[in-house]
Amino acid sequence: MAVLLLAEVTDGKLNRDATAKGVTAAKQLGEVTVLCAGASCSDAAQEAAKIDGVAKVLCAEDALYGHRLAEPAAALIVSLAGDYSHIAAPATTDAKNIMPRVAALLDVMVISDVSGIVDGDTFERPVYAGNAVQTVKSSDVTKVVTIRTSSFDAAGEGGSASVENVAAGENPGLSEWVEDKVAESDRPELTSAGIVVSGGRGVGSEENFAIIEKLADKLGAAVGASRAAVDSGFAPNDWQVGQTGKVVAPELYIAVGISGAIQHLAGMKDSKIIVAINKDEEAPIFQVADYGLVGDLFDVVPELTEKL
């Protein structure tokens, strides 16, 4: 069996963490070929070649792939698909955009957000906001899967795969990139951070979110948020943790002013240690927290920041 794994490449840079977690999962399915696509991607391809377990890297460098648009990316993958039993990608927003399109073009079902691999046909995936885990067996010729990165460790260094250039595929000419709005930050990335500090509606305003950010910076942590905090404009959309946001599993997750709705828990309940700070002792978040502290976050968080 052979696997084509779509690497996560943004503006020429490899997201090593997400890609290496994908490699760990893909290795269980067969020999791994990594596909890097981008307007520039040779550096990303060189870096991917060093990931332990990668047999080969394909590099598709063309302006067509510069902005991760689904239509050309899916067409490229489909043109390469014939050689592989499995086509996989870490379950990022890019992959969630591209892979179902690939699957439909191949007339197969996509298997989204795989959290466990039983065998080459059989996969585990969370459903109903993580309230149930389904084991599904695919009868399709080609398996198209996205990998839940929080369920797999990143593969290490030590690979020395060959890098091969592949020609660009057709340009479906259906969509056009206009702009990216990406906040630059020195903080670790949410899905790979060892510590995450998240704020909820209880934080009250965008200005008050500085309290959360100060604690995060003291800990070298990433900052997350609940949907309510994002909807209210306290925090940007890419901080949302949950069923329909990002899924994280850090060593330490600190939930501040978050009630613990099931949709939020879906994104963080696999964290090693969970700390909850909430003024309501009945808040459901305490039912999953290893350490709970009942108190006003405006007293507790600054004190915690100072004492760490």
């Binding site: 943004t10 902005h67 206009v178 990216d180 709005k181 990406v182 959309n237 890419d238």
Partner: peptide
């Protein structure tokens, strides 16, 4: 809404 923030496409 994407992982890195926001992307606008036509």
């Amino acid at each position: 809404e994407v992982d890195g923030g926001l992307q606008t496409v036509k």
